[in-house]
Design a protein around this nucleic acid. Structure first.
Length: 594
RNA sequence: GGCCCAAUAGCUCAAUUGGAUAGAGCGACAGCCUUCUAAGCUGUAGGUUUCUGGUUCGAUCCCAGAUUGGGUCACCA
């Protein structure tokens, strides 16, 4: 409709004033609620063509549009804004399209669809997942769903950083202090257990530094000379040299971590189509770097370390291989990229990684380009903002890291408490109750995180638990549950919900609801273009808020006019479906009752 | 210090990408359950959109500068 209006406006200006205007000079937008009308054309930009006042120009264009577009029945003018009224029949027709489709607003991928690979999560195997990872995982999963709803073939991928000096640190601490402790022997979740040893290493290291400084060494030197850090470095060399004992220990401890991660991923409801491990890709990266040296793209120093000089690209020098020959993060990312492109026919690559790594991805993009990969230049770094606590950034040293598992468990406790107080589920089996608590708890957490613009830094206050009232996941789930309750009542009463609405008049509130509802396809598209789950979240909230007012103001089941009653049932059902579909894009489930 | 990013109600976030009187939730205050689930609905209070200039018919949005906060510039990841 907006496109039609835009074209007709261009036509109007051409016939009325003999001028050709560019398509993007014509602004058509939904009319703000406080004014009469459905669509608004901003006429200010056309005044220089008409050489007339705003009101008169609007009037002339308005008359033209009423004549040339059948669905436009009337218009009004406020200042330079031309508000067009569109027939309710048009909206009912639009509504029927929404009611008819099972996945309204979604585009099915086909053979010609682009293949989009989305990397997210990418944990290190030396510590458990925390709140920052949660934002990453939820965004990654949701963006994947959104891209798929936009008709792309999506491959969700995860690169596990399973090797490197940081992994050796936990291994070393476990070897020194572990006494053979395992997840089984201690009853601890594997990733948490390994995380404890990473912290223990840090403590050892710090103590050694303090001791060395006491002997008169300066800090930098102490950091280099500490025996335990030297041991860790030796361990990394042993690991890269395939030392069996080191490899076995590594495999065992990583195994514990993976079991822990799997559990957390399952709880969060995220998954992957293909998981890569840095231990498999870093050698490919190293070979690529060495090829770069041979071809004169990178330079090797006398100490054998390899560097990329990006000063001509406005960046710095970047190390690619250490003097001891071991790889760094960047080396691995080069290898992973190469392998991925040979595994899949990737058209677009999206990295869901925090904005602290903007520089890293600028460099990666350049390096891949220099190595001759044509896709290097247009990799997309989906750079999201940090999650901060009221005191600022999470710091493991200060023990302020919010653990992912603890957070989810805490949310479930709150959901249980709230639900028990309300007592609406008293007649249900414990198993069913627990299932609903989980849905609601995760709905609260996910919505809380996904409703904010991914680019922005967001604040999380662990002191105040996430709300269940107002603009929240549970509020939306609750509305969905109420709709299902109505539909159950209708079904019990033997009322069939019609498939289409026809031959009826709708009230203003219903028209308003339909207008919001039918904007969903546009929202899905925008969310895809902007990689923004927040747009979907805001849409669903607006829809639900409007529906709750409607629910309060009008009765559905008790409506005496059968035709109206049936239409309202269809309206409620369609809105329920859209809530569910919208939430599915966020990875949030909806309960049938709560 | 160089570069990058942000700043909107007491708090957490929106604002159709330059449009109309800047909106929600939380918190505060006042109402609404004999009525399809009150995790709901209604109302009141709350704003010099950090500041100063500029561009424009029109600026929360674009530009310049300042202030404040954050990120990043490692043989860490």
């Amino acid at each position: 409709m907006e496109i039609l209006i835009r074209n007709k406006v261009i036509e109007a200006i051409n016939t009325l004033y003999g001028q050709v205007v560019d398509e993007n000079q014509v602004q058509v937008q939904t009319t703000r609620k406080e004014f009469a009308g459905d669509k608004t054309v901003v006429v200010f930009p056309f005044l220089r063509f008409s050489k007339k006042g705003a009101e008169q120009t609007a009037d002339e264009i308005g008359k033209f549009l009423v004549e040339s577009i059948e669905e436009i029945s009337a218009f009004n003018i406020v200042k330079g804004f031309l508000n067009l009224s569109i027939d309710k029949a048009y909206w009912i027709n639009q509504f029927n399209q929404a009611a008819r489709a099972e996945k309204y607003g979604f585009i099915q991928p086909d053979a010609n669809s682009e293949v989009v690979m989305i990397e997210y999560s990418s944990p290190n195997t030396n510590k458990p997942l925390h709140l920052g990872h949660i934002r990453n995982n939820l965004l990654g999963y949701s963006v994947s769903e959104i891209m798929e709803a936009n008709g792309n073939k999506v491959v969700k991928t995860n690169i596990v950083n399973d090797r490197g000096i940081h992994i050796c640190k936990s291994m070393l601490a476990w070897k020194k202090l572990g006494n053979g402790e395992t997840p089984e022997s201690s009853g601890k979740k594997g990733d948490h257990l390994v995380g404890e040893y990473y912290v223990k290493f840090d403590r050892l290291y710090k103590n050694e530094i303090v001791d060395l400084i006491a002997t008169g060494m300066n800090e930098d030197e102490a950091k280099e000379k500490s025996p335990v850090i030297k041991e860790a470095r030796e361990m990394l060399l042993l690991w890269e040299a395939n030392d069996p004992e080191t490899r076995d220990l590594w495999k065992m401890m990583n195994g514990w971590v993976y079991a822990g991660f799997d559990e957390t991923y399952r709880t969060l409801g995220v998954d992957f189509d293909k998981i890569y491990y840095e231990s498999d890709t870093y050698t490919v990266g190293r070979d690529e770097v060495l090829r770069g040296v041979k071809e004169g793209i990178f330079e090797q120093m006398d100490d054998t370390s390899v560097w990329a000089n990006l000063e001509n690209d406005g960046l710095d020098r970047k190390i690619l291989l250490r003097s001891d020959g071991t790889s760094v993060y960047m080396t691995q990312d080069i290898g992973t990229a190469k392998i991925r492109y040979s595994d899949f026919p990737i058209d677009r690559m999206i990295y869901v990684v925090g904005n602290e790594q903007i520089y890293h991805f600028q460099v990666l993009s350049l390096l891949l380009d220099k190595l001759g990969y044509k896709w290097g230049k247009d990799l997309y770094h989906f750079s999201y903002g940090m999650v901060e606590l009221p005191q600022g950034r999470m710091k493991s040293r200060e023990g302020t890291v919010v653990d992912a598992d603890d957070l989810v468990a805490g949310m479930i406790d709150v959901a249980r408490k709230v639900s028990e107080e309300l007592g609406k589920l008293d007649n249900y089996k414990d198993e069913e109750k627990e299932r609903i608590y989980r849905i609601v708890a995760l709905g609260a957490l996910k919505y809380f995180i996904l409703k904010v613009d991914p680019k922005k830094t967001m604040l999380f206050n662990p002191e105040e638990s996430i709300d269940f009232n107002g603009n929240t996941g549970p509020f939306i789930q609750y509305t969905y549950a109420r709709i299902q309750s109505i539909l159950r009542k209708a079904s019990e009463a033997g009322i069939d919900v019609p498939l289409q609405a026809k031959d009826l008049t709708i009230n203003d509130k219903e028209a308003e609801l339909i207008k919001i509802l039918v904007s969903f396809p546009e929202i899905v598209k925008e969310a895809g273009a902007n990689h923004s789950p927040a747009l979907v979240a805001n849409f669903v909230y607006e829809l639900v808020k409007e529906f709750n007012q409607y629910y309060h103001e009008f009765t559905i089941m008790n409506e005496p006019d059968e035709k109206v009653r049936k239409f309202r049932l269809l309206l409620a059902k369609t809105i329920g479906q859209t809530i569910s579909n919208g939430f599915s894009l966020l990875g949030i489930e909806v309960p049938e009752r709560m």
